[in-house]
Simulated assay, not measured.
Amino acid sequence: MKLFDKLFNPRDVRRKLGLNQQEFWTKIGVTQSGGSRYESGRNMPKPVRELLRLVHVEQVDLSRVRREDFEIIDYLKENHPDLYKSLQKAVKTRHETGTAEDDTATIPR
């Protein structure tokens, strides 16, 4: 068993979120019956594990993520590491203080 597999059990994550199997698994493109098999111990493919982690553990809204976003992140990391770290720290502080509201209206696209 890999370390990532030990980090979370999909059934525990689902129950913690208060979702039924249909709600939980549909968000990542898995049928309820397929999700039930994963919860019962069937080996979960890495792409499914990653989607589960992103959507249900990291709480990433995939409908808002674009390839360009990752390109911007990579650009900042490579060309402006201080700015990247400063932004990362600001976001972390915002989340810790509970001021992480939906700011999409103020972010130019």
Rank of each mutant, 00 (worst) to 15 (best):
N43Q: 14
E23K: 04
Q22C: 09
F4Y: 10
S40D: 02
A100Y: 14
D102N: 10
L19H: 00
R14P: 03
P45H: 03
M1V: 11
L3C: 12
E68H: 09
R67G: 02
V30C: 01
N43D: 15
S33M: 07
E68A: 02
Q59E: 04
G34Y: 04
D69F: 06
L87N: 04
Y75I: 04
Q21G: 01
A90K: 09
L52K: 06
E78F: 10
L83A: 13
T97M: 14
S63K: 07
I72N: 14
P45I: 05
P81N: 05
R14D: 00
H56N: 01
T93S: 15
R109H: 15
D61H: 07
K46Y: 13
V60R: 05
N79H: 13
R37V: 01
S36T: 11
S86Q: 14
S33T: 12
M1R: 14
D74E: 14
P10A: 01
Y75S: 03
N79E: 12
T99A: 13
G29C: 07
E58C: 14
G98P: 01
K6S: 11
T99K: 15
K2P: 10
K77R: 09
L87F: 12
H56A: 02
P47N: 06
Y84M: 07
V60S: 00
L51E: 02
R67M: 10
Q22N: 10
E58N: 12
Q32S: 08
K92W: 03
K77P: 03
D69L: 01
E68N: 02
E68M: 00
M44T: 12
F24Q: 06
K77M: 08
M44L: 08
E68Y: 09
D102E: 09
D5C: 08
V57A: 03
I72H: 01
E23V: 06
D103I: 15
D5P: 02
N20R: 07
G34E: 00
I73L: 10
Y84I: 03
N79G: 00
I73H: 07
Q21H: 04
T31K: 00
T97E: 15
S36E: 05
H56P: 04
K89R: 07
E96D: 13
K16W: 04
E96W: 02
S33D: 00
N79Q: 11
N43V: 09
F4H: 13
T97G: 11
I28C: 08
P10I: 03
G98H: 04
K92M: 12
K77G: 09
S40Y: 08
D103R: 15
K6M: 02
R11S: 05
L19I: 04
T31W: 05
I107M: 08
G35M: 00
K85P: 00
V48I: 15
R109P: 10
G35H: 00
